[in-house]
Design a protein around this nucleic acid. Structure first.
Lengths: 356, 356
DNA sequence: CTGAAAGCGCTTACAG
DNA sequence: CTGAAAGCGCTTACAG
């Protein structure tokens, strides 16, 4: 394969020689909090600068058993929610002086294929977004002292932490909102069937509808994919008893559903059809869509994720922690409005039936 | 900071002991092509499996001087073009058994702040997407034997390779297309002024218009940002002499421009205003937008990028290589059609005046 | 094919 | 505060 030549690169020993000090002194200069006199430090810094020295993080990792690398496994980047998450994660990890090793692919199955790779790099922690891990591997991480956090998914498994929003309550609130909007027939376009987010949103929605006396729910599956959501919308909207209101399990699919409804079936939104989504992702805010949607507080979700990781890395205690944050039902133009319950917060219209 | 405890983890020596062979034998078992008898290999593999051994990539990197890590510096993930690139890069690098260390942020300035970090990890190569590097740092990479590839940008600098499409020709073709479509007044909504892509697209557009006898170009700047593109569109479209056709420097901005045109100014597209974009990114294909746009062959761009990197890593020769690929003008519904020149290829309509 | 040994570039007790 | 030394977990000549 690669028979390439590598340039040597300057080492701490070379710097030590140049500065007339020991190699230990050079190391201490670059170790925050290490015991070193200002004078020695200055000499070392000067030599380091002159020679263009940079500590070798690989060598440091080897001896400290800390790579300062967090593996992020993420698929499904076509859903803008995840690029946003990634960008925020990059920022948050950089602030903690950690680095982000990215593994893409593998949305619908467990992330086992990449697992071997990431373990070889002795990552200090693992973030799984829109994907999960088999239980054996989760156990292995716990045994190896490597914290794992599921982002926007959750699990019963002992060793794995998670950060989510109140998906169930979200589904329920959407049901309340649609019922208050005067709709009497309902549809659901589902995400991946084995994902906890889809399950929770669905269950909350069903529960909310039932509490209002509605059990006539029509369901099709979009598997969180644009293409499949389009197909699901075609089927659902071609029914003679087409529902008046549809909750689409995320905004990424809701955009597709709206396009199909408007341009293939000529439906006016929201006059003839109400659409509600989930996530509050970029396109939901674009005027063409204006999707009424349950928001997920992305920044706080990322903060929590990094928090959990840093805690467990510092303590060495791997025990599952589940953080559940709250979003809001952001009201825009894709669904008919209820008579009351809409309040304004920070320039956004949100649905809060209790407060109004 | 972190006083955490790390579990020991099983090493090649432990496996050697367990299998009753030397540590070298264990190492050879996990080094493709190394000299090892099938019998020894089997013993080692059995022990490794039993103990849950995985070679330590960090230790390997230290001794081979190859981290098998490629740094990717990428900002501007809100433009779906880049998440798509990232996903494809992940795949392509994984196929070569390389890993992807991601640095986000820093769209509009050079990526110097992250440079130190990435050099400390002794990455084997650097990919810069939607960002660039100062010339001193480029030189430093070359001196250290680390190849650098600019993705979707180019530069005159000696040491840095690049992968782009024919932006200039793209701008020119768009001009021809709009003139052929019968427009007589033209606008340009610019990207970042210091980016080579923006400069080349602009110059090609101006040149193409001039060749057709038009010099009355109106220009506003969107800096590749959605917000600024909206503002630019408002200004341009409120002019009494509003142009009939606008080339927006990328699709990400074109979407914003279309929303402003339709919903704030009530313009019909393409009857009253033609819009052409660049990239052929996801939303360009959504029915709500249907943007006529110059495509960029993302997969081939990624392949070329990884190609250049692998070549230079293998040879140890860092010399700038510039690959320039071709896209097509994909014709959709956001711009008025010329009488002729539109052909069908692979189910897509493209503009190729020569062939028609 | 195999093992003993050197060494990659660091950190960190240890002794002074 | 400082230096000599051990050692992190590997790869790879070297000699057999």
């Amino acid at each position: 394969m690669d028979s390439g030549v590598k340039k040597p690169g300057v080492t701490s020993s070379r710097v030590a020689e140049h500065a007339g000090v020991s190699q230990s002194a050079v190391s201490r200069t670059f170790t925050p909090g290490a015991s070193i006199s200002p004078k020695t430090r200055q000499k070392v810094l000067a030599s380091a600068k002159e020679l263009g020295y940079r500590p070798n993080a690989i060598a440091r990792s080897l001896i400290t058993s800390r790579s300062r690398i967090i593996a992020v496994v993420m698929a499904y980047l076509e859903n803008l929610f995840y690029p946003d998450v990634l960008e925020e994660l990059g920022r948050a990890l950089a602030a903690e002086n950690y680095h982000l090793l990215l593994f893409t692919g593998f949305m619908d199955r467990d992330s086992d294929p990449v697992f071997d790779q990431l373990m070889q790099y002795r990552v200090d922690g693992i973030i799984l977004a829109s994907t999960s891990l088999s239980s054996e591997l989760s156990e292995e991480c716990a045994a190896a002292g490597i914290p794992v956090v599921l982002f926007n998914r959750t699990t019963e498994r002992d060793a794995v932490s998670s950060v989510t929003t109140r998906n169930r309550e979200g589904g329920k609130r959407i049901a309340d909102f649609l019922v208050a909007g005067g709709h009497t027939s309902f549809g659901y376009i589902a995400g991946l069937e084995n994902s906890s987010t889809n399950r929770d949103r669905y269950e909350g929605y069903v529960e909310g509808l039932a509490a209002n006396g509605y059990t006539n729910l029509v369901v099709e599956t979009g598997n969180y994919s644009r293409k499949e959501a389009e197909a699901a919308a075609r089927v659902m909207l071609s029914r003679p008893d087409r529902p008046e209101a549809i909750f689409v399990a995320n905004d990424h699919m809701a955009v597709a559903v709206m396009d199909v409804a408007r341009y293939e079936l000529g439906l006016n939104i929201p006059e003839e059809l109400s659409i509600v989504g989930f996530d509050d992702v970029g396109p939901a805010r674009w005027t063409s869509y204006g999707i009424t949607t349950m928001s997920q507080p992305l920044k706080r979700m990322v903060e929590s994720t990094v928090d959990i990781l840093m805690d467990q890395i510092a303590s060495g205690e791997i025990e599952a922690e589940h953080r559940i944050l709250s979003g809001e039902l952001i009201v825009r133009t894709s669904a008919r409005l209820p008579q009351s319950g809409i309040v304004e917060r920070d320039g956004q219209r949100i649905y809060r039936p209790r407060e109004a």
